[in-house]
């Protein structure tokens, strides 16, 4: 190989690497990974055809589940942040930007679509479509890996799993059956669950088509899951909330996919005074796709939205959404 050709290859590789940071953060060790011992996937005890079959097997094994009271239900109070996940290992081999899409994990149409998405990520440095850029919710399963801060509130009859981005709130109906009186699917679907001692087992159905994240495979409207949540403690005062998940999708997967996601206590955030609040998507609204790539509207440009500007009634006193400083930016003509 000539020196010039070698240099060209290095240059191409460097360009691809330089523009592909997200491929790295998509791997285990990312999104808070590296806290505590390596995450290990625990597959289900046998193969199930559907999430419902899987869930009922676990429910029967738990003899109908543990009936917790308000005093016995496991408490996961406080702030939590993501502590890694393994989901990309199911789809990319080896992990990282040098990896390739695993053949035979996804069905042919979903595999073809994902290979194009992965090509964009590796070669162009970005996937040219992200629902969040358009202010759509992360949805499920993306909810499982979204960073920012989380709260998990357990009551005997219901659990509330909260991500402050969006915000995205999942409700787990304990000891109940699925309901879908709306006759449609939604971003977080319908989740039922039961307690098996200190483990929370859930079954989620009726989800809208979504994805694991923008550099991960797409999911269909038949995507379902069975999750097992458990607070684990390790040496060195490591406390980790681990979620073993089996994903089912008859349109997207050749067979069910297993992964583990984790959260750790956000003690650093609590110490910094953070409290969960509603983060609106107004800043996101300034992110757009233009000529095939992501960019942002700037102050003064048409369509710019000022998240700390004023309300629809700027002439009234006290309408600034930045009352501490009450500053202004050049306004653009907002898109309706």
């Amino acid at each position: 190989m000539s020196v010039a050709r070698s240099l060209r290859l290095v240059a191409v590789a460097a360009f691809a690497l330089f523009n592909a940071p997200s491929t790295i953060v998509a791997q285990p060790g990312a999104f808070g990974g590296g806290y505590g011992p390596p995450l290990a996937v625990v597959p289900p005890p046998k193969t199930f055809q559907t999430s419902e079959e899987h869930y009922k097997f676990l429910l029967a094994a738990a003899k109908g589940g543990t009936k917790h009271t308000i005093t016995s239900v496991p408490r996961w109070d406080g702030l939590w942040v993501t502590a890694g996940n393994t989901h990309m290992s199911s789809f990319i081999d080896p992990p990282g930007f040098t990896g390739k899409v695993r053949d035979g994990v996804l069905t042919p149409p979903y595999e073809k679509a994902y290979k194009e998405r992965w090509r964009q990520q590796v070669e162009l440095g970005e996937v040219q479509y992200d629902r969040l850029t358009h202010c759509e919710p992360p949805g499920y399963p993306r909810w499982l890996l979204e960073p920012y801060s989380h709260e998990f509130v357990n009551l005997p009859q219901e659990s509330y799993l909260i991500n402050d981005f969006g915000p995205g709130i999942r409700r787990i109906y304990i000891g109940q059956e699925h309901k879908n009186v709306y006759g449609t699917h939604s971003w977080y679907g319908d989740t039922i669950g039961f307690w098996d001692g200190d483990k929370l087992v859930t079954n989620t159905k009726y989800l809208l088509p979504a994805d694991f994240t923008r550099w991960s495979p797409m999911t269909s409207n038949q995507f379902e899951s069975v999750e097992t949540w458990q607070l684990k403690k390790y040496s060195g005062d490591v406390e980790r909330l681990e979620v073993q998940v089996t994903f089912y999708d008859r349109h997207a997967f050749v067979k069910p996919v297993n992964a583990v996601y984790a959260f750790r206590r956000g003690k650093d955030l609590e110490a910094a005074g953070h409290r969960v609040q509603h983060w609106e998507c107004e800043t996101s609204n300034n992110d757009v796709f233009d000529k095939g790539t992501t960019t942002s509207r700037l102050p003064g440009e048409a369509g710019f939205k000022d998240a700390r500007g004023s309300t629809l009634f700027p002439d009234l006193p006290g309408q600034s959404r930045d009352p501490i400083y009450n500053t202004t930016l050049p306004s653009g003509k907002e898109q309706k």
Binding site: L17, A20, P21, V25, L132
Partner: peptide, 16 residues
């Protein structure tokens, strides 16, 4: 690559 990707990206869009 490891040097260039040291900072964790929490974005909902790429940095391209």
């Amino acid at each position: 690559a490891s040097l260039l990707t040291a900072s964790a990206a929490m974005a909902h869009h790429s940095f391209a």
